[in-house]
Simulated assay, not measured.
Amino acid sequence: MRHDLPIPPGHLGLGDAFDLAFARLEDATRIVRVADPTVQIAARLWGHDRAALVREEKARARVEALIRAALATGVLTAFCYSPNGGVWGQIPTRAGWSRRSDFPGLDTFLDSGEGPDVGGSPVFVERAAFMSWMAAASRKAGIRPGRKGRPSVMQLVLAEYGRRAEMGAFEGLPLVAVAHDLQAWFKQTHSDLPAPSPSTIEKHLRKSRSDGDAPKTNKK
């Protein structure tokens, strides 16, 4: 895999695009992630945490199917680098997008049989085009933030906070700065949805922290 090749500005790695769609189209905050391969194998062979695995796999499979269909029909365009890594452009064929991996989901680096053969290049999509497609997919499915069984605006914010906090992105920052940063992210990522105010985000972060659900940041 060519991990040395960067995702061009204005684009999203296919794995990041999938994660965004999963958070938007499914209530990802209520799905227990079963990411550990050992746990996955145990669930498949011996039934340990089987229910959690089934819920996650079904949810991820639904989103994967939507993205694969869009790529296979040309609604979405995927890009990759040339074999020598010097230039990048549109993947010349849409054949292969109907295939599925053993574990539902999409990655930026595709294993053999998971899509078109791109020679180990990262696969990416144009950010603006993907965000437009995701908004249309939400409308088509009748998804509204806050609708029962669907992610709310704040759940999307908290999911992003949790993802970035795990990487230490907010370590030492005051909550007010974190809240402003998350609002800016939300406006860019979910521009078709009403963004919560920084004060609302900060209030929910404080509540999550008091409930023991959020990583610690500077209190100020």
Rank of each mutant, 00 (worst) to 15 (best):
R2K: 14
R2A: 05
H3R: 14
I7F: 09
P9T: 12
P9A: 14
F18M: 02
R24G: 04
R24P: 03
L25D: 05
D27G: 03
A28P: 01
V34F: 00
V34E: 10
T38P: 01
T38G: 12
I41R: 14
A42E: 11
G47Q: 06
H48V: 15
H48L: 14
A52D: 15
R62A: 14
R62Q: 13
E64A: 13
L66E: 11
R68Q: 06
T73K: 03
T73M: 03
T77A: 10
Y81K: 06
P83W: 04
P92H: 08
S98C: 08
R99C: 05
S101C: 10
P104N: 08
D107K: 13
T108C: 00
G115D: 02
D117R: 15
D117F: 11
S121T: 07
V123H: 09
F124Q: 01
S138E: 15
A141Q: 15
P145M: 11
P145G: 08
G146Y: 01
R147K: 13
G149A: 10
S152K: 05
S152R: 05
M154L: 15
Q155D: 12
V157M: 02
A159T: 11
E160I: 00
A165Y: 03
E166Y: 03
P174A: 10
V178G: 03
Q188I: 00
S191R: 14
P196V: 00
T200F: 00
H204F: 06
R209F: 14
P215T: 07
